[in-house]
Design a binder for these strands. Structure first.
Length: 285
DNA sequence: TATATTGTTACACC
DNA sequence: TGGTGTAACAATAT
């Protein structure tokens, strides 16, 4: 499931592969993946557009497009959410053998390369928004909390937003996109293990040292995961079809009933607000 | 066949 | 009003 490190990995790779390319056509094989407009309108609006930029906000990819001025329809951004099982697969040369029943959109570029949007569970989506609305999506306050890897996200800032959400349990809070952007089930577990804090702890109960440790965990684990191209749990692979190597570094996620790597105690799995959480009952207080 | 899976959101509740 | 929790939803694997 793509969280911030996985989406950022894809973003960087797309940037390298696609900037400057022209979309020759798009083939929508599953129209429900396209939100807001019909598949036909979607195809018409992106055909002939140039790929200008690839940005990320939280777990969302934003592909900046530019249309020839003479079209007079203005520019659009392509907004992509992969949700649980979405994949973007880049091919230097189109190979129809790579098409599966999970291939829902195919983008054809004028140099012969292609991008497949696959999604086993079909939870993801793509939509087009006018270019002038892109900045608003990227802005803070609108919908998402701060980007954890930006310099502006300081310990002071973390303390400040925490103080506004005193009653919440820390794990659901870390996963709340309006609180902080990009963290999901895997990395919230890993960050809290790093901080030796149990996922069900209430925000107000956290001591200053614990808050600092959680902050450090965010700043350490996310970049480390990006460096290793994310974690391949479920179906995640990068645009070259490769798995993320951070999966071998996971300390608690998916390790229930296995022994804690630090103290050999059995890792537990519990439900917190309907979501599974993994933790070491000895290391995490 | 029932259940588990997660990110997001609509909605109930205090 | 807004913070919090719950349920529902998407579709599939087991």
């Amino acid at each position: 499931m793509p969280e911030l490190p996985e989406v950022e990995t894809i973003r960087k790779q797309l940037e390298k592969a696609l900037i400057g390319k022209k979309i020759k056509s798009a083939e929508i094989r599953l129209s429900k993946l396209v939100k807001g407009i019909s598949a036909r309108e979607f195809e018409n609006k992106i055909r002939g557009a140039l790929i200008k930029s690839i940005k990320r906000r939280a777990k969302i990819l934003i592909v900046g497009l530019s249309n020839p001025v003479r079209w007079q329809i203005g520019n659009f951004s392509l907004v992509i959410h992969l949700k649980l099982t979405g994949q973007l697969i880049y091919q230097e040369k189109y190979d129809p053998k790579q098409i599966t029943k999970y291939t829902h959109i195919i983008y054809y570029f004028s140099d012969g390369s292609t991008l497949f949007h696959n999604d086993l569970r079909r939870f993801g989506y793509v939509k087009l928004i006018p270019a002038e609305k892109t900045d608003k999506l990227l802005e803070e306050k609108e919908k998402f909390g701060p980007e954890p890897l930006e310099k502006q996200f300081t310990l002071e800032k973390f303390k400040k937003i925490l103080s506004k959400r005193q009653g919440a349990k820390i794990k659901p809070l870390l996963m709340d996109q309006t609180f902080i952007a990009g963290i999901g089930n895997v990395y919230s577990d890993e960050i809290l293990f790093y901080a030796s804090v149990r996922p069900m702890r209430i925000a107000t109960s956290l001591k200053p040292a614990e808050i600092q440790k959680i902050y450090q965990g965010i700043k350490k684990i996310l970049p480390e995961a990006i460096r290793l191209h994310g974690s391949s749990v479920d179906t995640y692979i990068d645009i070259k079809g490769k798995q993320g190597k951070y999966i071998s570094r996971l300390k608690v996620y998916g390790r229930d009933n296995k022994l804690c790597l630090k103290c050999k105690t059995k890792i537990e799995r519990v439900k917190i607000n309907g979501r599974s959480a993994h933790f070491c009952p000895r290391c995490q207080i």
